[in-house]
Amino acid sequence: MILGLSLGHRTVREAEHWLATHVTPLGLPDLVACTHLVATPYPHVALSVAVPAAADRLAELPATPPELHEAAERAAAEHAAGRSGRAVRYPGVDRMVGTLTVGEVLAGSAIERVVVLGSAAAGPDLPLDTRDLVRPEWRDGELVLVAMPHYTGGLAPFEVPDPTPCCADH
């Protein structure tokens, strides 16, 4: 079951905070929750929440306001198709801390592929400095982490933990 929610969050940070306080406490280990940037009826962040088991627990979440139904439905459809969505919660996210090899990331989480920005898939022995923020995205039916070269010689996720304020909402 994939539930689309659109509650009018204006920023990714607001949406992630809402997920952390309302969805994460449900304690569902196979949960995959994503953020989706939407433009209509106004720019905001919609959410998609997928949980194969114990889906009845999602009934505790609030309903999407009528004017945002289309955005919620689109977020759920994109997640279901594996076309888009930035995963905030997913199996193994709690283990994505410190420096891990790409192979450890793939073996220890729902992430299926790590790609280097502008390049091909990363080799399993490359170190990845997670910076304690690993947000893969749906691409062609797979959860893919986009990484970039890191000054240590390995990789780091492309998304930085504390973006500069001018770019924080893009």
Results as ranks from 00 to 15, higher is better:
residue 34 C to N: 14
residue 91 P to K: 06
residue 23 V to P: 01
residue 53 A to L: 09
residue 73 E to T: 15
residue 42 Y to C: 05
residue 86 R to W: 06
residue 36 H to G: 06
residue 37 L to E: 13
residue 42 Y to D: 09
residue 28 L to H: 02
residue 56 D to Y: 10
residue 57 R to H: 14
residue 37 L to W: 07
residue 64 T to I: 15
residue 39 A to T: 15
residue 57 R to N: 04
residue 82 G to F: 03
residue 39 A to E: 15
residue 83 R to F: 06
residue 48 S to D: 14
residue 80 A to P: 11
residue 38 V to F: 04
residue 45 V to D: 04
residue 76 A to S: 10
residue 32 V to K: 08
residue 22 H to K: 11
residue 67 E to T: 14
residue 73 E to M: 07
residue 73 E to N: 06
residue 49 V to K: 02
residue 90 Y to M: 02
residue 53 A to V: 08
residue 38 V to P: 09
residue 41 P to Q: 07
residue 77 A to L: 10
residue 25 P to F: 07
residue 89 R to S: 03
residue 57 R to E: 12
residue 65 P to I: 06
residue 91 P to Y: 00
residue 39 A to G: 13
residue 81 A to W: 01
residue 33 A to T: 15
residue 72 A to W: 10
residue 35 T to S: 10
residue 60 E to C: 02
residue 78 E to T: 03
residue 84 S to D: 15
residue 77 A to Q: 09
residue 91 P to V: 04
residue 44 H to S: 11
residue 69 H to R: 13
residue 24 T to K: 14
residue 72 A to S: 09
residue 78 E to M: 06
residue 63 A to E: 15
residue 62 P to W: 07
residue 33 A to W: 09
residue 51 V to G: 14
residue 58 L to A: 13
residue 82 G to N: 04
residue 61 L to G: 04
residue 58 L to E: 05
residue 22 H to D: 04
residue 88 V to P: 00
residue 65 P to S: 05
residue 65 P to H: 07
residue 46 A to R: 06
residue 66 P to E: 15
residue 57 R to K: 13
residue 43 P to M: 05
residue 29 P to I: 01
residue 75 A to D: 08
residue 35 T to M: 15
residue 60 E to L: 12
residue 26 L to E: 09
residue 40 T to R: 12
residue 85 G to C: 12
residue 57 R to V: 05
residue 67 E to S: 14
residue 80 A to V: 06
